[in-house]
Every structure is written in C-alpha cells, then in structure tokens.
Design a protein around this nucleic acid. Structure first.
Lengths: 255, 255
DNA sequence: GGAATAGTGTCTTTCAGACAGTATCCA
DNA sequence: TGGATACTGTCTGAAAGACACTATTCC
C-alpha cells in the first residue's frame, strides 16, 4: 500500500555539503569543527536541517551562504557564484547515534575564496586538503610529509560522503565544463590546467592541454585581455563559454 | 546549529523505483496503476515507505521484490538478478499534496521478464515503453503511430524521475558494462547490440559493434556455446566479464 | 540459390600523447 | 643573458566510422 502518509515513520532530513575549491595547487574541502556531541571536537562537513517548506536544493544553498557567504550560481548569472548539484543521499540506520537522519548530500564547486568565518567563529571552519582528510586514494600524493595535520577521520559517515563528492568532481570535469567553476570569472589556460592537475592529482602536458581546451568548441571564450605575470610571457584571458558538455572530452590519464 | 534532532521537522521518506528493461527492441519501464487518490487511476512508479530501521538500498530492494518478484544482484552472485543503484532524491514541497514526502529514487536494470503480477493484481502493473511515458526526448522515435496508448503523464513528479533514470542508464552503458544487466546470463553480441540500440534509440553498425565489444578487455567472456538461430549463422555465446568500467568506452553516436 | 545473421579485414579520419621549436615576459 | 611561462607545429599510435568480404544457417 504505497503512499499512506497518515502512518509514516518519523525521519529527520538534513543536507550536507561537500564544498570543494583549489587552493595552492591542492584540492581542498570545507570542514567545520563540531561543538557538541556526538563527535565533539571532530571535523565534519557543513550542513543542517531542511525546513519543512523548503526545497532540498534551496536548503543546500541556504546552508552554503550561512557557512561561507558564498552564493550559488543561478541559471542566468553565469560565471559568478558557485556550482551546486545534488550528490547522493545517505540514510543508513545508525549513521547518527541519536535518531534516524537521512542526509541529502550536495556538491559545491567554488573558486578560491578568503578563509570563511562561519557565524563569526573563525576557528571552527577551515579549508583542508582532501588528501589529508581521506586516508585512501593516493597515499603519497604530491606534497612532502604532512604529519600532524588531520589524522582523525571526519565525523559520522562524512568521510565516505567526501570521497563520493571528490570522485564526482573528478569525473564530471572530464565531460563537462565544470572545471571553470573552480576559476575566477576571467582566467588563463595555465590556471585552468592547474585546476585539472589539482583535482586529478596528476601532471598534464601544458602544450597538449592548451591545444585541447582552445580547440574544444564552446569551452573557452577569449576576453581580449592578457595577464601580467611573474616571469613568463603574458597569457590570454578567457571566460567560460556556453558549452556545458565537452566534445571531445578532457580524458583523465590513467595507469 | 546543525544536528539537533530533538526538534526536527517531520518528514516522510520513501523510495521510488525506475525499473528498466528491454522488450521487443524497446526500452520499457515498470509502472503501477494507483488505486487511491491523489492521482487515482493514473500510472506511477513503484515505491513505498522506508521502514524506520531499514537502509535506503534495502528498502528499494524490498519494494522491487514485492512488486516484481525480482531479486537484486549481490556483490558476489554476478550475472544473476538485477542491478540496483541510487538515482537521486526528490523533495520538492508540494510534490505530494498531502504532506512533505522526500523520495529517494533508485534505478534498476533488469533482463526481460514475464509480465509481473504485483500482489496478484495483474491489471495494476505493466511494462510500458518509455517513449510512450515521456513526451519529450525523441518525439517520433522509431515506431509507427502510437495513438491511445499512454497519453497521460505519470503521477506526482514521476515523469521527471523516470526521465532522469533513463538518462542515467543511457550514459552509464557508455562507460560501464551495465548493458549486460539487461541481458540473460548468456547472450550473443547481437543481443547486446540490440540493448544498446533500444536504450539509445539509434542504429549501430553490427560489424564495428562486434569488433568493439570483443576487443574491450574484460567486457565479454565466451562460454564456448553457440545459439541456434532462425535464419543466420549461429552466434557465439558470451557472459559478462569482470570489468565494470569499459576502456575504451562505447561512445554514443551524436548529431 | 536467396535472405539473414555472424564475424573479419581494410581504409580514412580524428584525436591523444610526446616533444621540437618559437614568442614574450622578468630578473 | 638566462629562466620561466605561453603558444604553435609535427610526428606517431590508437581508435572510430564506413564498408567490402567471407562464413554459416534457414527457407
């Protein structure tokens, strides 16, 4: 007997946010420190309850603004704000020790930002490189020793949510123009290449990369300006083109 | 103040199922006729409430078995049962006129089956070609006139859920071996090609298709047997190989 | 033999990857 | 001048798409 809401079991519904950006050549995620039990003092993904008359995506956008001051890119105002999409839903019984909580995780891709101050409390929110938050993946990625940074896993099942979000970002920038969501409104080919290198954790050939992205129709639009750089030929500035799916795609190098 | 479950808003959480199969060269979805208002008499996707101590995936598998008798493929028993994965979550306020219902949609890919009899009521469940359920997409796909088959849209927001599930299936068979989930345990290259043609709604070159799928490592494993066919050279029988991601992928032809 | 399906080979084009070489800045 | 980054061109191999051809069955 489907859909008999008169006798439904009581659930709490929340949104959790995987907010990713690229800072100093590293893929970073936004984490907040928990002030109350359970997992008091541990880092967790930002999130909160969905209000009773609020859409899921609206709840995610509201939590994002509350935690970071970031605004979500609407369908019209391209090249400003962040990209937001639904990621997956996590509802294992026991994922929250207090009660049954179903969390609809969302993925946010944002350009580099000043360190956020959530609710005025700067100590409780930070950007953390994802390879310090996720034990698996590439254990010795690119950087030197990172002892004492972030040994403890995230609270609840947030490590798995973060891993799913990172994998989603890694695969989506192959076939879509979403990598530009990590960039400011105007950017160079080199900056875009460093986004791909940080998200994938690989080194890409600058020559072939330049030829590919400028040859993919609708991906990049030159703005006419150039950048003054430190030591090197000035680079052309681009903004994101109208294309959302890339053809041919940017293929992630594999083993 | 995240995670204060003592004052959570009350939500109902359900699972809805997009069950797809290929019958008579057409991609079909499982739909059930609603017996009560709202949308009484209209077709809808199968689904139901998540129990209070039940995982989301387990709820989807249970509903699938209750509605179709189908069993879900476990991690070990390959080549038997259906493929199930989470699709997306739909929680718009007002999607159910009675109360706030958040539905975690799941996608099921199944081989061709006898027409199910849900709860003994054969009139209330059927396979319907997806192009008779979705007005958009390719309006004049391949078949002749289909007047009077399924003019009314699905109940609730199930048309959108179905469209999302179909698009997920169309893109996933490009990069994974999931097309074999539409096939019986042993199948021929021609049967697998007809699955791709039905899901994508295109015609594929039999020669190139054969060369591609047999050349992709881990996709197909010959069983040694052959099929007696009606008018034509007997075909080799294959079963699904261990590969889950296809390299190179099966690229969907575009404009 | 004719129709139908299965399977192989061959050619062309496109594209990824490697890499030589030129252009233009800063120190 | 040297170093660094931006950009162009060239070569090779892999693969997609088009299609000729052979193989094996049923009628």
């Amino acid at each position: 007997m489907p859909y008999d809401p008169s006798a439904f079991p009581p659930f709490a519904v929340t949104v959790d946010l995987v907010v990713l950006t690229v800072r100093r050549h590293a893929l970073c995620a936004l984490v907040v420190r928990r002030g109350e039990p359970p997992y008091q003092g541990r880092w967790a993904l930002p999130g909160g309850f969905v209000r009773i008359d609020e859409d899921l995506g609206a709840a995610a956008a509201r939590e994002l603004t509350e935690e970071t001051g970031l605004h979500v890119q609407g369908p019209d105002d391209r090249h400003t704000g962040a990209h937001l999409e639904q990621l997956a839903t996590y509802g294992d019984p026991g994922r929250d020790p207090r009660m049954r909580v179903v969390s609809v995780a969302h993925l946010v891709l944002a350009p580099d930002l000043p360190t956020p101050t959530a609710g005025g409390d700067a100590d409780s929110v930070r950007w953390a490189p994802v390879d310090t938050l996720l034990p698996s993946g590439q254990p010795s990625g690119g950087g030197p020793d990172r002892s004492g940074e972030q040994p403890a896993l995230l609270a609840f099942d947030h490590s798995r949510i973060l891993a799913d979000g990172v994998e989603r970002a890694r695969s989506k920038i192959e076939y879509s123009s979403l990598a530009t969501a990590f960039c400011p409104p105007e950017f160079t080919v080199g900056e875009l290449r460093r986004v791909y290198e940080a998200v994938w954790g690989v080194a890409l050939d600058p020559r072939n990369f330049h030829r590919k992205v400028t040859g993919t129709p609708g991906f990049l639009v030159p703005t006419g300006g150039t950048t003054t750089r430190q030591g090197g030929r000035p680079a052309q500035l681009f903004r994101a083109g109208g294309a959302t799916v890339l053809n041919p795609p940017m293929l992630r190098p594999e083993v």
